[in-house]
Structure formats: C-alpha cells, structure tokens
Design a protein around this nucleic acid. Structure first.
Lengths: 355, 355
DNA sequence: CTGAAAGCGCTTACAG
DNA sequence: CTGAAAGCGCTTACAG
C-alpha cells in the first residue's frame, strides 16, 4: 500500500535529527520555552513546517491525560423530536467554539436503548472527550444523571429543573409561550385558544404548555381554552387540526409549540377555507427558517439555537479550565410578529419584540 | 476538585493487581488470547467489569497507530447549499455505521477559507481519524484533491467526474432529472418548461440541469425551455418565480433542482392565483420530508441520503481494512409521483417509480 | 543552565 | 509455554 506509506507520521524525532538536538528540546522549542535559544527555536520551527509536522493527538492525549476533544451527545429520539434544523444550529454553534479552542468535536448518538447507554458512556470513560454538551434529553432519561455523576464536565442545553446542580443553558420557554399567547389575547382580541403542545416527556413541551395556560388563566379564558398534545412534527399539526373537524370553527387562535406543527395546522386551515389571520390567529415557536416565507408569514418565538450552543460550549471550556460559577444561564428570546397573528399585512415584513 | 477525581482511569494495572497477574496478561485475557487459561480469563473479565474498565482510547491509538475514529468533513458553505435535512441524514447514516464498528465519529467543519483548510488537514495529519467521509464539496474546491493525495482513506458522497480515481458514492443526478422532466412531457403533455437549477459550482447543480436539458432536447422542446440559476433555498425559489412576473403565465411546467426551491415557487404560484397542477406542473428533487405534506403533495425524486452515507461509510471501513475495488458506486433513486405534477388527485397518495 | 530519563496505558515481539 | 521488556510520540520532572 504505497499510498498509506505517504501518510507516515512526522515526529519530534525527525525534526530533532534534522536540527541536531533531542526530541525533548524540539518539544520545548515548539512550546516557545525560554530554555531554548532563539536561533534554535527558529531552526526547529523551520524544520517543523518543512517536514509538515503535526503533533500526534494520541501521544499528546496520553501524555497530557486530555483527549483534546469534546463530545456532542445526542439521544436517538432527539432528532425526531427536535428536528433537523435545531440540531444543525447546535452543531454549528458547538463546532465553531470547539474550532476556536483547537479541539476536535465528537458526535455521539445513542443507536438504541441497549447499546445506546454504552455509546456515550464509552466516550466519557475511555476519555475520548474531555467534556460533553448534552442536548434535548427527555425528562426521565436516566442516563443524564449518570453522565453528570460521572464527574465529566457536562453542559446541557435546555431546561432541567430536576437536576438543579447541573450546568445548563436554555431559554425561558414558559415566559415566552405566555408572552406570545398574551399577544393573541391582548393585541388581537382572541378568546377561544388552542394550544398544540410538544411531547410532554420533554421539559420544553411542558414549559411551553404551562406558559400558554398561565396566559389563558390570567385573562380568564381557561374555560374556552384547550390543549392537544402533538409531537412537534408537521404531520402531527395536520393530524391534530384534522381531528378537530368541525370544532375548528369554534377556535379563533392557535398557539403551536413549534413552527412545524403550525405549518401543519396552516395547511389544514387553508384546505378547510378558514382564513389566517382573518378567522384564526396562528403562531408557532422556533423561527428556524421557513416561518419567514410561508403565506402568511408565521408569527413565532425566535429561539437562538446556535447562540445557545455557543454559550454552552464556551461555558464547557470554562469548566474544563477549572472555573466554577453559575449553574444555569438563560438566554433572552424575541417575539417575531409577522402576518399569521394578524400583525403585518405585507409579506416579508416583521416586527421583533424582546420577551 | 473531588468530582474530577471520580473519573480517575481504571487501567490494566488495576485489574492485574486485583487478579494477581501482569498487565500484559490482562491485555491478552481481554483479547481472548488462548495463552491465558480459561479460569484466569474469567477472573480478569469479572474484575474488569467490576472495576468498570474501559480501555484508554489514547493509549490504544498510540500503540496501534490507529485513531479509532473517522471524520465527517463538511465544507462550510455546504450547510447553506445542501440544507439541514441532507446533513442530518448523512450524519445519521455515517454515525450508525461508525457505531457498528465501535469507532468514534469526528465532525470537522471548515470555519472559513483561511483556517478552513487547516481544520481538516489537521484532522488527517494529526491522525485523529483513520479515514474520512467528505460530502458536498464544490467542484473547484482545491482541498478535495489535497485530501485524497494525502493518502488518508477518503470516500466522497456526490459526483466527482474530475477526480476519476476518487472513491465516491452518489446517485445519477442527470438521469433522474431527465426522468422527472420527461414525466412532465410525456405523461402530462407539458411543453413550456422552466428549470430552476442549484448553484452551478456544485456538480449536483450541473448534472440536474443537464438532465433537464437532455429531456427538453430529446423532445424538441429546447426552444421553449428556460433555465434560471437558484441556490437551493426556498427563498431563491420565491425570488426566481417572482422575478419572472408575467412570464410565469407562459410556463406550464417547473422542474426545480430541489424541493425547497419548489416550495418557494409553489408559494408564488399560489399567491398569483396560478393553479398547481391545473395550469402548471411543479416538481422538485430530494424528498426529505416536507414534500409529502404540502398541498398539493410535491412530486419529486427521492434521494436516499442516509443510505448514501451508510454505503460510503461501509466502503470507507472496507478501504481502511485494505480492500481495493470499485471507485464509484451509484445508488438507484425513485420518482415519487404525488399531486403537484398532476398525477395523484388525493392528498396522501403517491406512486413510487424507479428511475 | 541543560541533557536525557521517566512515564502516560496499551500491545506484542522477544527472551528465557 | 510464559514473563517481562520494548516502544508507540509526547512532555516535564529530575539528575547532572
């Protein structure tokens, strides 16, 4: 295999031989150790770049007892529950911060319940990663606590009220959901509201539902309000709206727990001939891209997923460096008012309002 | 830091001490080496699982000269060009095969043009990965050739006619695009066709356009046909259709290079009051999910992105194991006929036809 | 001040 | 047949 041969490692030894010093000295020279004279340092640098030296990550990891990598842990179910856009945003945020720290990013998924546990437990135990970002775990996921108890630095994205000592970065889902619901009530005079929730085994689903309930209760509209549990997929939005049938006519506002479900509802309303926002105000949650181009544009809560990931990862590096400090960071979100609630008549226009 | 202490590594030495043999013997026992007696082997296994032994990936990597990881390399621009769903499918496919081989998955992105090169060159040179999957590189991306020349096992997803020796897995974009265009011509009698292409700096964009041109030329419709270059985003579909203005009325069929752009076109057609599929047949490419739930359902080419990734990764492991063999594998695709071309009248119905 | 050894944790080639 | 050393490539504590 001549091709493989070309990959042959360039080591400190090769540089040492060329410059005429020891590997130890080369190591120090490359680390700009003052023990090594300036001219030798330069000679070493030159030789290193000529030979195309790159340190062996394995040797470094073994010697330093640090992997030089962090892991992004993704429970299997999460992709389906949270959607592709959410993960790409998280991946981009995590990845860019890891790059800034010159650290590799491992992505660990749980293939199934049997080996799933092992999948990321192995990551931590084998010390393939020095820390982990965990996103979108279910409320009752037992692996989360195990992971935290293991002592590996972990930062979670989302809300974890049952793990008060865990470090997490998230948004205030409840307040945001309440705010967008109150927008329908106070600005658009809606009184018969439906909430299409996410799965209630995730904290996000619970919090967004509770925010909706906070709003309808505060305005004395609880009796007219209803909640249907969906699963955050567009299909479940279609299904929920379709199942309502004639009952749809009795509703004048729909608060969906994410945009995808809102699209599903929109499709059914349109098919049924119910005007949005004329007869029904419709709002979503997420603002991961498509909300801007639907007709009408979808009013929603903008979740800064990439920013959440960036903060979580930055914090992770802080913890790995020995920092202590806060356990929970909440990132503010915005209401993005477009046409579907009744705000902006013309396509493309939007108003952004901090919650 | 008491928490960190809990992570303290369990090594072969710990097992050896407990069982009363040498680390070497433990290593052999765990590898089921026949040199070690059955009872010792059992004792070692018991001790290992009691102590929670997991081999050090760094030590193994250093000793075996293998990283125990593969890399998924993603050029920066690619996310925007190919979309979130495409990448999640690729990630899932690659990840699951890596899991099956008990190998870690590294995700390497090129943060920007300056350090971008270094980003994954470092991955290969530092031997952080034993092989790489490269997806969606631009035609003129110089890093691709460098990567292949480096000797690191690489499998690419997509089409790379300029790199005939490269190992790649893809679909026949040109044939599929021709097939779906001919469907509009022969089955639905469309004669004034518009192609909304992807970016032409990616082979996919070129191939799908050429397939469209093959079809209109073969049927003598080239003079009535037009091509507009988009960028695969829904917005660009909106923009292209809007820019056409009154010209839209002269068209009776639109072949978009992906579904997202088709949604954009659909939005404009609907807004303009042009009936799909009554006045215009509209088709896309990808079938990554939403095509099923639009109204009408979008006729498209189903691209098995996850399967492509699975095959590419399986092949990568083959190459890493020393296999030689084919350089290019083409995965067949299907036409999925729904309502937007004029085929299935009722929502939810679809016909699947191999290309 | 500087040279060279020790050792991270593993596996296997080698000596006995 | 089996015990124990060598060595992967690094970094730093130690001896001189």
């Amino acid at each position: 295999m001549p091709e493989r041969a070309r990959v042959r490692r360039v080591t400190l030894r090769d540089i040492a031989d060329r410059v005429g010093i020891t590997p130890s000295a080369v190591s120090m020279a490359l680390a700009d150790n003052h023990r090594i004279g300036a001219e030798t340092r330069r000679a070493v640098r030159d030789a290193a770049s000529e030979l195309g030296y790159v340190p062996s990550s394995a040797a470094r990891a073994l010697r330093n007892q640090r992997a030089g990598a962090i892991a992004l842990i993704v429970p299997t179910t999460a992709t389906h529950v949270f959607g592709h856009s959410y993960f790409m945003h998280v991946l981009e945020g995590t990845s860019s911060v890891a790059n800034e720290h010159d650290v590799q990013l491992l992505v660990a998924t749980n293939p199934d319940n049997e080996h799933g546990l092992a999948a990321y437990e192995r990551v931590m135990r084998s010390h393939s990663a020095d820390g982990a970002i965990l996103t979108s775990a279910a409320i009752d996921d037992p692996t989360v606590e195990r992971l935290i108890d293991s002592g590996l630095p972990v930062v979670m994205i989302g809300s974890f009220p049952y793990l008060p000592t865990a470090v997490s970065v998230g948004i205030d889902d409840r307040a945001a959901s309440r705010a967008i619901t109150e927008h329908l009530i106070t600005v658009h005079g809606r009184t018969r509201l439906l909430h299409l929730s996410g799965t209630l085994d995730h904290q996000t689903g619970v919090d967004r539902r509770d925010g909706f309930l906070d709003a309808v209760r505060a305005h004395g509209l609880a009796d007219e309000a209803a909640v249907i549990e969906g699963d955050l997929s567009e299909e479940s939005g279609v299904a929920a709206a379709s199942a309502l049938g004639a009952g749809l006519a009795a509703i004048d506002g729909v608060v969906a727990a994410n945009d995808d479900m809102a699209y599903g509802v929109l499709t059914v309303l349109r098919r049924t001939g119910i005007d949005v926002p004329g007869a029904v105000s419709l709002v979503g949650f997420d603002d991961f891209g498509l909300a801007r181009v639907t007709t009408p544009g979808l009013t929603t809560v903008r979740v800064p997923a990439q920013e959440l990931a960036r903060r979580a990862t930055t914090r992770l590096f802080g913890i790995m460096a020995g920092q202590e400090g806060w356990h929970r960071s909440t990132v503010p979100v915005d209401l993005v008012l477009r046409g579907s609630c009744g705000c902006a008549a013309d396509a493309g226009h939007e108003t952004v309002l901090p919650v």
